[in-house]
Design a binder for these strands. Sequence first.
RNA 1: GGCCCGUUCGUCUAGGGGUCAGGACGCAAGGUUUUCAUCCUUGAAACAGGGGUUCGAUUCCCCUACGGGCUACCA
Length: 507
Amino acid sequence: MKEIRVRFAPSPTGPLHIGGVRTALYNYLFAKKHGGTLILRIEDTDQTRFVEGAENYIIESLTWCGITFDEGVHIGGPYAPYRQSDRKALYRQYAEQLVASGHAYYAFDTPEELEMLRKDYESRKEMFQYGPSTRLGLKNSLTLTADETQKLLDSGTHYVIRIKIPQNETITVIDLIRGATNFESSLLDDKVLFKSDGMPTYHLANVVDDYLMKISHVIRGEEWLPSAPLHVLLYKYLGWEEQMPQFSHLPLLLKPDGNGKLSKRDGDRLGFPVFPTEWQDPKSKEISSGYRESGYLPEAFINMLALLGWNPGNDQEILSLHELIDLFSIERCSKSGAKFDPEKAKWFNHQYLSKKTGEELAVFLTKQLAEKGISANQSYITHVCNMVKERCHLLPDLWEQSYFFFQAPKSYDEKVIAKIWKPQTTELLTGLTTVLVGIELFTAPEIEDSVKKYCEEKQVGMGQVMNPLRLTVVGTNAGPSMFEMMELLGQTEVLERLNKGIEEIKV
RNA sequence: GGCCCGUUCGUCUAGGGGUCAGGACGCAAGGUUUUCAUCCUUGAAACAGGGGUUCGAUUCCCCUACGGGCUACCA
């Protein structure tokens, strides 16, 4: 069987959004599943769209996701270089080979001429197509004599090389997800393969590199399906039909609301990240938020993404990277686009977060505390994490759910006071202080015991005491188990807060 | 406009000629909890429409509608 070699081939035109990450992920899963090789190739044939730092961003954000490559622009490999601009010298010969074999031709029309032609057609409500029906009326090596063509070439006139699309052929694209799709060649146009700046277009570079790098499967977004017949033709005309990779076109990721494919704007508009990690535009300096910075765990992020357009065929939703590799199959990818759901992304993160150990989470909370100038000992922080982790969805919740372990309340929630602070509360709590002072071993069970006894003595329900007590200790009516919390805070601290509360809370 | 792809609860989806059309997110109601959250239980919620084929179609075929993608010397 043919060796499995797949590639992720982004353009460094900006940060990679989650749709791109998913494409990378599916390539990764496919490669790992079949013991194959995953390659990172940078497709930077359009130098006008180059964005500083984008390539680096792609590498770093995928690394955060846990997606690793076997060959690529950042690690080299047997088919280096892996950046198309570094392979520039290589493409011209293939374009010229196509001209020589009669499957392509030189075209000398300027962009301005073509633009005018398009406008002209448009005004007649028609679409201009550089193809079989029009190419004989344009300035190219098909209409010029060999002499004239040569003269233009020699004089340094700008030219492009276009594919000569055949007249009445049906081109079949076999796709592992969608099956066979037929395209009529007469509806295709003579796409530019080689640009006047000496660079190939995507179509040529992609086919040449996939061939040269022995790519066995092309897994890419659905937006490439319409140009797949062109690629099939290229393999055929270059004489590489036997080595043509198998195609899979992934469905698109759509906006959570409304219609259309997910874009950067949607994130800003709806308040969720569309990029794996934070990105700052080098020109506008505008910052786009990332999943990492928003407090998502990479495992959760990847798990969520994997299930957007693929599923294992059973009800299991929480899947480790290892399980994903094990279960993945390209045939189980869905055909229709998936609307992205930010709420479910949070749910996934909650699942992973609550299963982390206190030690693991302490690393994050320690960092958050440091930013606020708070320090505490590690075992205390670990304890706190264990106590609050199940209440957290995103990493910043660690602090949101536990701040009162690190600072006494500065104020008390008015609404809660109104609801629970009764006329006899002050007296009840004052009595409680003497009970708490008397506890020798300040542990949760001991405290619970004493408080229960106290309530029985006073003939009041636990809530009468516990709710106001929580208010004095936390500042509001939220938080984990009071008794465990008190044990962790310690007798002195609890009494201090209690006394302060009794002092300050008046109805 | 043309070409191509698609269409199961609001969303992600399973299923596939005879099913109570299953799960998850979200939502609602109960329960647990001294509180909030978690958690547990329950509930509402879907086969786009019309024609075929068939004893039977959500499942197969066709048409329509709707959605999406592409239609650059961008990728």
